[in-house]
């Protein structure tokens, strides 16, 4: 019992120093189960490779430079698409959130196009733009746009009127009220929108790469299917999960902590 407590105390200290351990530990049982199932050979090894084979394949792909090149392609596509989606989405959302006429005119249209999911655009995009970057960028921008717009509109509308009045009575112009009050007030919702948008965008990108791609993680996975290499498909899946965790944990979560949580707008 005391030994167990000591071990727990040790773990708590170590994981406090290296937070990455706290992230990795939950995966240990998952990997153990995977290993066991693979070792028992319930499924043929070619269909269900174990962690060792996947790790080996990972190193090979990394060593050959394929993985890094494809990863770079995917991340750049997502970054470009997301940046365009945000640059379009936030001003649009501010317009809709602040102006009831704009809301009246644009809201139904927005909901209509939201229903036509990203992938549903692919058939027509392929005819219009062919198998290329334009098609993929369109899909990502489209996917990122809606969560960003809908959440930002919500954020803009939930800024208390008293704060806007306070700013106005302190001499703020309409523009200063926007930059000093409405935007920071909407920030927690904007970040939620970014988080959802990037998450959906990431998934849409992989789907688009599978159908349209000539490179990228999605393409790598689909290409591996053609070669019948389950190992490489699994490598792709793991890379997707890890990459998203990194983006969320190293970029989005700190952003959230520095804004909404710090200001007491979002509970920790």
């Amino acid at each position: 019992m005391t030994l167990l407590l000591k071990a727990w105390g040790y773990y708590a200290r170590v994981s406090k120093r290296w937070p990455v351990i706290e992230t990795l530990v939950p995966f240990l049982p998952l990997i153990a189960i995977w290993w066991t199932v693979a070792e028992l050979q319930i499924f043929p090894p070619a269909f269900f490779p174990g962690p060792a084979e996947v790790a080996q394949s990972f190193w090979t792909l990394l060593y050959k430079g394929i993985l890094t090149a494809y990863l770079y392609d995917s991340v750049v596509r997502l970054a470009v698409g997301a940046a365009a989606g945000i640059a379009l989405g936030i001003p649009l959302a501010i317009l809709i959130g602040l102006n009831w006429r704009a809301h009246l005119a644009l809201w139904p249209i927005l909901l209509f196009f939201q229903a036509i999911g990203d992938i549903a655009w692919l058939p027509i995009l392929l005819i219009w733009f062919g198998f290329g970057l334009t098609t993929m960028t369109f899909v990502i921008v489209y996917t990122v746009l809606f969560p960003v717009v809908l959440n930002t509109v919500l954020g803009v509308r939930s800024v208390p009127i008293e704060l806007q009045r306070a700013a106005a009575s302190l001499g703020a112009s309409r523009w200063r009220i926007l930059t000093e009050v409405i935007l920071p007030g909407a920030m927690p919702n904007i970040i939620t929108g970014l988080r959802n948008g990037l998450g959906y965008g990431w998934r849409a990108l992989i789907a688009a790469e599978i159908i349209v791609g000539t490179s990228g993680i999605g393409f790598m996975m689909f290409d591996a299917r053609r070669a019948g290499s389950v190992v490489e498909i699994v490598v792709g899946m793991i890379v997707l999960g890890v990459l998203w965790y990194i983006v969320d944990n190293w970029i989005l979560a700190p952003l959230e902590r520095a804004t909404g949580e710090r200001w007491g707008l979002v509970t920790k």
Partner: peptide
């Protein structure tokens, strides 16, 4: 001066 204080949280 507002009843709800209306300070800017950020």
């Amino acid at each position: 001066v507002f009843q709800s204080f209306a300070l800017f949280p950020w």
